[in-house]
Amino acid sequence: MEYLPDFDLLRPKTVDEALALRRENPEARLLAGGTDLIVNVRRGIVDPKAVIDINGIADLRTITSPDGGGLRIGAAVTLAELLEDRRISEDYPALCEAAAEVAAASHREVATLGGNLCLDTRCLYYNQSEWWRSANSYCLKHRGDVCHVAPSGKQCFAAFSGDLAPAVLVLGGTVEIAGPNGGRTVPLGEIYEDDGAAHLRLAEDEILTAVHLPAAPPGRSGYAKARVRAAIDFPLAGAAIALRQEGGVLEDLRVALTGTNSCPILIAGTDRLVGETVGEEVAEKLATMLPKQIQPMSSTFTPPGYRRKVVANLVRALFRHLTEAP
């Protein structure tokens, strides 16, 4: 039998109950779909004393349209549910396309929006079995002293690999976080840090409960992803773009990437391209903005130089696609 290490399984019915359990069990881990957590527990890189199953919290499972416009999507809404919701496929195509690109159909039945946003960072030296890692004296992210990707430094370079975060970033999404002192709502980008060993700025007693998307902006959005095994893999790199053009002139442009750093990256300076005429020249200018803002490392089977080229190609191709006549 392949038993997992011992832990208590707690199944709260409300956010308040979950927060109380979080306070009582500081080392507990939240379980939604389990497609990331359970695998990591099996590999021995996560050893929770308690697991809090949040699937029974009704408030986290709904998609609602608030009065002020936009959408509120509960953190435990599954990717399959996201894909079946017409409000999302019609108004927020980047989010829908990103959800469709996550793993395979059976994963998407249980994997959740919140889980994908809070996905653990990944690395060749980390997502391995216990015997593999022990033979390598472990690594900086878990039990070890050395980052095998950058042995001279003291930073972990495991890559953020969630597909949905760049889409939420370009769509201007905010996240609702419940905590002991009430809730707070912050732009998604604020919950991340570019540090592979501590990439989430969420306190141990906080829970990401929902994503708010502002009223659908006019214009188009999309997501493109490169991966080794097309059916199921995490991204080598992923790019989301939201843009608006009027008479061939760019009026708004936002670009965000995943798989290149330890957190998703909203590309700075794209506003400088607003007012330019859409075409190859702008696509090229956009591609030249990327290299200085990203830092792919040897944390995957594909070398960093290759991933830099892939990112630029993804962004160029997606930009062309979104600026062509639909």
Binding site: G34, V51, S106
Partner: peptide
Amino acid sequence: GRSRLSCISLAHT
């Protein structure tokens, strides 16, 4: 009625 990977699902869920 929906497909699920039983090797990464806890029985109690």
